[in-house]
Computed example of a mutant assay.
Amino acid sequence: MTVLRVPHFLGEYLPELDLPLQGDDVILSDLPAGDTWVRLAALLAPVADAVAVAAGRGERPVVVSGDCTTAFGTVAGLQRAGIDPAVVWFDAHGDVQTLETTASGFVGGFALRMLLGYRPEWVASRLGLRPVPEHRVVLAGARDLDPPEVAYLEGSGISRAEVVGLASAQLPDGPLYVHLDLDVIDPIGVPGLRYPAPGGPNCAQVTAALSMLLATGRVAAVGIACTWHPGHDAAAAVGDRLESVLAAN
């Protein structure tokens, strides 16, 4: 297991961000001036490079960061290494907004939709990221959805699942990229979340689902999005369980 730490939130360097895993490498970039997408592409290019190297050596990279957009670099890196992953996306939110549907304009709300091929000129084309087909995606734990997201998901090929009871039979074939936004956990167990969504599973239930996925032997990479504000000791609330599950598999 290779742990890559990316202490950023949407391209903003957060040196004080508490991340729950110690890393083999910390990815820091001198980000250029420009819009969010230019800066994100510059940050995620070395993420893709590092993932490609680790995956090419037969290792399983774990990318720990402050938001969900690092998934673009992780999946691009796997693809460069000749791995075509399906995606299991744990998140309290759908992350399938578009510019045409979003009410807030929040960039993180586009993350899964962009992985599926939306607006490739923003980041994907810069990284050489190929879109993941909808039918190769499982969205687990999403409960805070805007009406446009509900409508999109109902008509898409994306599979929906609950975290508790997630089974290997629900998974797409082939290698897997497992993306874990830690706001999928009920906020009572994770202090300081940026976008808390009550009614979710607890940390033990989420890590049990992660353990099941890892036990399949098909997980090519894991992304962990620590979508919380620094200074609340959120990492301490989840770190031991995450480290134990990852080390055991």
Score class of each variant (00 low, 15 high):
M1K: 10
L4D: 00
L4S: 01
R5M: 06
F9W: 10
P15R: 13
V26T: 15
L31K: 11
G34T: 13
P46V: 09
A50S: 13
V51W: 00
V53G: 03
A55E: 00
G56A: 05
E59I: 12
D67R: 07
A71S: 13
A71K: 01
F72A: 05
G73I: 00
L78W: 05
R80C: 09
D84R: 14
V87E: 00
G94V: 11
D95Y: 14
D95S: 14
T101S: 15
S104C: 05
F106R: 13
G108Q: 12
G117H: 05
G117D: 03
G117V: 04
Y118G: 02
E121T: 15
W122L: 11
W122E: 07
L129S: 08
V132S: 02
V132I: 14
E134L: 05
E134C: 07
E134M: 06
V137C: 09
V137Y: 04
A142C: 08
A142M: 08
A142R: 05
D144H: 13
D146S: 12
D146R: 15
A151H: 14
Y152F: 14
I158L: 10
A161W: 02
E162G: 10
E162Y: 09
V164S: 09
G165C: 07
D173F: 04
L176W: 04
Y177H: 09
L180Y: 02
G192D: 07
R194P: 05
P196A: 10
P196D: 07
A197R: 10
V206F: 05
L210K: 05
L213W: 03
V222G: 05
I224V: 13
W228Y: 14
P230L: 13
P230K: 08
A234R: 05
L242M: 07
V245S: 01
A248V: 09
